[in-house]
Amino acid sequence: MTLLGATLKGIFRDRVFRGLLMVLVVFAAIPAVSTLSMRQVVSLCLTLCLSLSSLVLLVLALFLGGTVLWRDLDRRYCHALLSLPLSRERYLWERYAGIALFLGLSALVLGGMTWLVTSFVAAGYPPGRPILWTVVFGCIALDLLKCLLLVAFAFCFSAFSTSFFLPIFGTIAIYLVGGASQGVHDYLRSSAATDISLAVRRLADSLYYLLPNFSLFDIKLYAIYGLPLQTSQLLLSGGYFLVYTLLLLGLSGWIFARRQIP
């Protein structure tokens, strides 16, 4: 068994997947809630499905990303695992791959649920505009990428932190800042912000370029209202994710390899 397999198995044995299946029950309530909409039942249904999927993936990413390494260190599994002829980097990346695989699987399940529920609702309330399924699934895929990026951040924090505090709350902070950074950037570019000092602008600009920009992964409105989306944007988001995540994983590996495990 590889460490990747062990990671995946550990997550299943911790009944995380069962928890996910419980959340799926909430999906069953979505058709009923959707009928509250006056004019856009299918859009509301998609809004609810995609938001729920987004939330579930986010919680999983925070929970798994923030605790898996921390638990190995805290319960001293690391002593047994890192004394095997397995480099620290390899250990970290296999753990990451295990979580990534699980999140991917969850995204698949959530996507399936979204398809099921939305198709059911659309059969009863024909939507005004056709549902663009590729955009809907693209939306969940981008949500997944965003969460994988967050897990990489959590790993980076775990690589040098001794408690789960920094991994979890640091990652939440990254999530909030990364989500807001585009909005702040746009605001500072607008005419409403002329009286803001140069120093603040510089700071905001450097944060904008340094921290991840999660707006790149948010195409919910496109998916909900069937707005056409260029493939190039998806490709750009994918490339951005790949480069940023590899950078973070490299950095985490570098830090973790230098860490003392007394």
Partner: peptide, 9 residues
């Protein structure tokens, strides 16, 4: 290891 612990799942 001293007082060993292994991934308990």
């Amino acid at each position: 290891p001293e007082n060993p612990a292994f991934p308990d799942t």
